[in-house]
């Protein structure tokens, strides 16, 4: 259970988030949508305590993460898997080592177990043979998939995805969406997905929060979106659907499963 309560954050006198409150119950997938630069990434950085809000608090499993000790905070963070927007792979390590890194650091399992787990994770993101490659040798989309493999390696309770499908081809996007869905269903993972890809949202989200002008301008279930009369939200969704309409028919299929 992640609760964000009345978060306000400003950088250099620009208010990025104003009184933002969100509840993410166990097992639910929340999609946070909004235009670029609307503070979506800032929001998720608050959720894992990478940023401290000017006002408000973040409660994870009953603990206010800004009040606990740093050691306790790090223990809480280990429940999270975070997929960063650019992947954030460690560029001094190969893809395999990147995925193995959290396993080696926190589990102390023997090398054989770690190896099979890493291979399974890379298999899940459909990149089984790139273990030896360095991040610089991988395309942006591949880097992001390796980063996803790393985020799920420890089978976290919470996964935060920052733009998981941006920059990916539609087929891979679909695959990633399916992966997120299956993780949610199989492992009862609680997720926050930051995206502006409405196609993804419709595929994976239980609920949607729309951030506009530093506030949560709208929130509700996926089905509520089309019934909404919120102008900014509808503008956003329509712009997106237009783009989606241009894409392959494969995406249409999963729009209304």
């Amino acid at each position: 259970m992640i609760r964000l309560e009345h978060i306000t954050k400003q950088f250099n006198n620009t208010v990025v988030l104003r009184d933002v409150s969100l509840d993410i119950p166990e097992g639910e997938t929340l999609a946070v949508i909004g235009r670029s630069g609307s503070g979506k990434s800032v929001l998720i950085k608050h959720a894992v305590g990478l940023l401290t809000p000017d006002e408000g608090r973040v409660v994870v499993d009953g603990a206010n993460i800004h009040e606990v000790s740093y050691k306790e905070l790090r223990r809480i963070r280990r429940k999270f898997g975070v997929l960063f927007q650019g992947g954030a792979l460690f560029d001094s390590m190969s893809a395999f080592e990147n995925v193995a890194f959290p396993l080696r650091t926190f589990t102390g399992k023997p090398d054989g177990n770690i190896r099979s787990r890493v291979e399974a994770c890379l298999e899940m993101v459909q990149l089984p043979d790139i273990g030896k490659k360095m991040p610089s040798e991988l395309s942006g989309g591949m880097q992001k998939r390796v980063a996803l493999a790393r985020a799920i390696a420890l089978e976290p309770k919470y996964i935060i995805y920052d733009e998981p499908t941006s920059g990916l081809d539609p087929a891979t996007s679909n695959h990633i969406d399916e992966l997120i869905l299956s993780l949610n269903e199989r492992l009862r993972v609680t997720s926050i997905v930051i995206t502006h890809d409405m196609h993804s949202v419709l595929a994976i989200a239980d609920r949607v929060a729309f951030i506009h002008k530093a506030r949560i301008a709208w929130s509700g279930t996926v089905d509520d979106i089309h019934r909404s009369d919120h102008k900014s939200l509808l503008d956003f969704v329509r712009a997106n659907e237009y783009v989606i309409g241009e894409q392959t028919s494969a995406s249409e299929v999963s729009l209304h499963p």
Binding site: K45, L50, R77, R78, F84, A88, F106
Partner: peptide, 9 residues
């Protein structure tokens, strides 16, 4: 990458 390290705990 530093955020990633931190977020991992």
């Amino acid at each position: 990458q530093i955020d990633a390290l931190e977020a991992m705990g």
